[in-house]
Computed example of a mutant assay.
Amino acid sequence: MNIGQASRASGVTAKMIRYYDEIGLVRPSARTESNYREYGERELNELRFIRRARGLGFSMEEITRLLSLWRDRDRPSREVKAIADKHIADLEARIAEMQAMVGTLRHLSHCCAGDDRPDCPILADLTGGTAPSEPRPRTRRG
């Protein structure tokens, strides 16, 4: 099949297929006499593997290693598990960082009057100021 058909069958864009081929992530596909790439089941399986790994947030370096292990039928599964466990730890750390960001932003938003006045603890914090510890009363300007 050609690159368009492989793209539809794998869910990977033709542009990304070309990129993966260029960086050596996928093994070079066969070429026709007119130098067009041809894709078979092996390449489709690799492209689906890459798409799923990217969907799980693995880095290109991790995907390269996982793909290499997947191709090696004599691999020890402990190497695959080690990569997955490290990725889990990285994801959990990122989640914790994001939850801390949400907490900070929630506090800043709570402290902001959100009225017509120009002073804003959110902007103050972004410029290196400190956020107030208690929300200011929301008063109407008359």
Rank of each mutant, 00 (worst) to 15 (best):
G40S: 14
H87D: 03
G4F: 08
L91N: 02
I23A: 10
L47Y: 00
R51A: 10
E38I: 13
Y36R: 03
A131S: 15
R54F: 01
R18Q: 05
R37Q: 00
G24A: 05
H110P: 02
R31F: 01
K86L: 11
P118I: 06
P118E: 08
S10W: 10
T32Q: 05
C111L: 09
D119L: 07
D21E: 12
A100K: 06
M98G: 07
I50W: 00
P135G: 05
R117V: 15
A84D: 05
R75K: 09
A14D: 02
R138I: 15
S109T: 14
L67T: 09
I122C: 03
A89K: 00
M101D: 09
A84N: 02
S109H: 13
G142M: 11
G4D: 08
I63E: 04
E22L: 15
E61Q: 14
S34W: 07
I83H: 01
S29F: 00
I50S: 08
I3N: 09
R138D: 08
G128T: 05
R141V: 07
V26Y: 02
E41L: 13
Y19M: 00
A131Y: 02
A82R: 06
D85H: 06
N2G: 07
L25A: 02
D72T: 00
G142N: 12
E61A: 14
G40I: 11
G4Y: 10
R117S: 15
R117E: 13
Y36M: 01
A6W: 06
A30Q: 14
S29C: 06
A93P: 10
G24F: 04
R106Q: 15
D119N: 14
P121S: 09
A14Q: 08
A84K: 01
R18A: 07
R140M: 10
T64W: 14
S109R: 15
H107S: 11
R136M: 13
K81G: 06
P132C: 04
L47G: 07
E62F: 11
A93S: 12
S68N: 14
D85C: 04
E61M: 00
D119E: 15
G24Y: 08
I122H: 00
L47M: 08
F58V: 02
Q99G: 11
P76C: 11
Y20Q: 06
A93K: 05
G40A: 12
S29I: 02
A30R: 11
H87V: 07
R141P: 04
E79T: 04
D115Y: 06
